[in-house]
Design a protein around this nucleic acid. Structure first.
Lengths: 203, 203
DNA sequence: CATAAGCGATACTCGTCAGTATCGGAACCC
DNA sequence: GGGTTCCGATACTGACGAGTATCGCTTATG
């Protein structure tokens, strides 16, 4: 009203960025345990020791909160340029595994499993999940496969798109349908027992 | 009270068994479209052109209705004895495909996808689904793989349990995560492009 | 110190849904 | 025809959850 206000001039107590982190982490935890439909905003608030007002001051709805929390998961995505050509497909795979957070692969699978029916009913959520969470991993694997084809390790007529889906598909099925834990060991086992034979390499 | 009533003597109008079929089919349809959490009993009733009282006269709760509808899906399960040894792994696979209903593979995948988060939160439902719907298929595939090992088509040191999961895992991922249709063609493509190379056979 | 905003906590509104009750009518048995 | 049960339809009850409002307190600016 009066005159210019060049920069946003915050008045009063400022938002505590630590609350964001606590709320996002609580959202991911509850999401993994109960799924999207089973998760309530009150669960997240009490898990984060926050008031509901604090949540709704930062995210306008439950859906936005979940999308935001998932977006934070993708910040550590690995791309093809993070995996220097190490001379062989199996060595590239090992490098990729090291470069990936290493950490929360089981958590991600459980979150994805809890989101599944919502993917079919909510196209916006589905688009975000597929672009942010799914596509980067698949693209990376296809890149490694393409390198292996160029090296001559893999026959050039193989369907790289299908091959790139083997490992994520089988980890997801193990978690979502069989209810078995997804660990780094089970991941490695899938690579050795299924992926490498499927592309025509022996470990 | 009075005296014996040796057999159940039905008095009054009898239940219409056709209503059972309509309600079960409506349940499966709604389940595939919306998932367990998104499905309401009113949706099923109106889809089946039935009153809610008719549903609750036959099933005591929404959970029992869903379990019953799924049980009806398993009546056409194929077992190893339905697939005579045809001399080669690929021929056995083709026989199995013919013997299976051929029909509603996409519907089953969508139903399973809509049930996913409930599998993690409801152990009873999970046990029924895994025993009735999942295990029979996996067991059949493992049986065919074992035959192939005995024939010498497949190396004896391969992990048959893991190999048996390739096709269902990748069909489920395609449906539940990627949101792409699961058809007989995509099923065959998985067999030719992934399963056969993984076991060391070329189509 | 006065004003302004964030904080956790709690109570409230409002729509939705599982399950129940009731209705008029139809099918079945004696 | 009388009694009983099924049928579809509709209204009702009670619980639960998303989103809003408010309270007393704290943290910042000036």
């Amino acid at each position: 009203m009066t005159v210019e206000q060049t920069a946003a001039r915050p008045v009063g107590r400022r938002r505590d960025p630590e609350r964001d982190a606590a709320i996002v982490q609580a959202t991911l935890d509850v999401l993994a345990e109960t799924g999207y439909e089973g998760m309530t905003v009150d669960m997240v608030a009490s898990r984060a020791k926050a008031g509901k007002a604090t949540l709704y001051r930062r995210w306008p709805s439950k859906a936005h909160l979940v999308v935001g929390a998932i977006a934070s998961l993708t910040e550590t995505n690995v791309t093809l340029s993070d995996v220097p050509d190490s001379g062989s497909f199996t060595a590239d795979l090992a490098t990729m595994k090291k470069a990936s957070g290493h950490s929360n692969i089981g958590l991600k699978m459980q979150i994805l499993a809890g989101l599944t029916p919502s993917l079919a009913s909510d196209p916006e959520l589905a688009a975000i999940i597929r672009e942010q969470l799914i596509a980067p991993r698949t693209t990376l694997m296809r890149g490694l496969l393409l390198r292996a084809v160029e090296r001559g390790e893999i026959a050039p007529d193989r369907d790289l798109d299908a091959l790139a889906l083997i490992v994520p598909s089988m980890m997801f099925y193990r978690c979502a349908v069989l209810g078995q834990p997804v660990t780094l060991e089970s991941h490695q086992s899938l690579i050795d027992e299924i992926l490498l034979p499927a592309v025509g390499l022996r470990p």
